[in-house]
Amino acid sequence: MDLITPGSGLIFWQLIGFLGLLFILIKFAWKPMLAALEERESTIENALKQAEIARNEMANLKAENEKLLAEARLERDNILKKAQEASNKMIEEAKTEAQKQGAQLIENAKAVIETEKKAALTEVKNQVAALTLEVTEKLLKKNLADDASQKALVDEFVKDLKLN
């Protein structure tokens, strides 16, 4: 068996053996293996793609949420501002109203007091007049009890008339 002369037996068995090995391995090893590898690779690729999509969706959702939150915050601020304004206005109005009513009340009270004062004064005047009349009557009754006095009074009146 020489080093560089190929032996016919070895070529024969090598050819048969290798072709047999090739057949068996292709059919039972490489085809299922390559198929499994491809399947796994596509699975991984799909998973990665899906993860990417999910991540994008998450980002979108987050952005949307933030937008909504910002809007809600703005809304809240607006509402609060409006409420503040409304309450301020109401307080202001109430104050004005109260002031107006107070003034009115004071005015009314003043008028009543005036009226009462006038009535009281009139009463007092009437009383004085009545008392004066009574006193006068009593005086007259006493002074004109005799004829002489009556005559004197008439004289006096006549005197006055003359002067006029």
Binding site: M1, G7, S8, G9, L10, F12, W13, Q14, G17, F18
Partner: peptide
């Protein structure tokens, strides 16, 4: 003649295979 012997290398080849 043609030799088709199972030589040492043929056995080795089958072991490898």
């Amino acid at each position: 003649f043609i030799e088709l012997s199972i030589t040492k290398n043929v056995v080795m080849m089958f072991i490898v295979m």
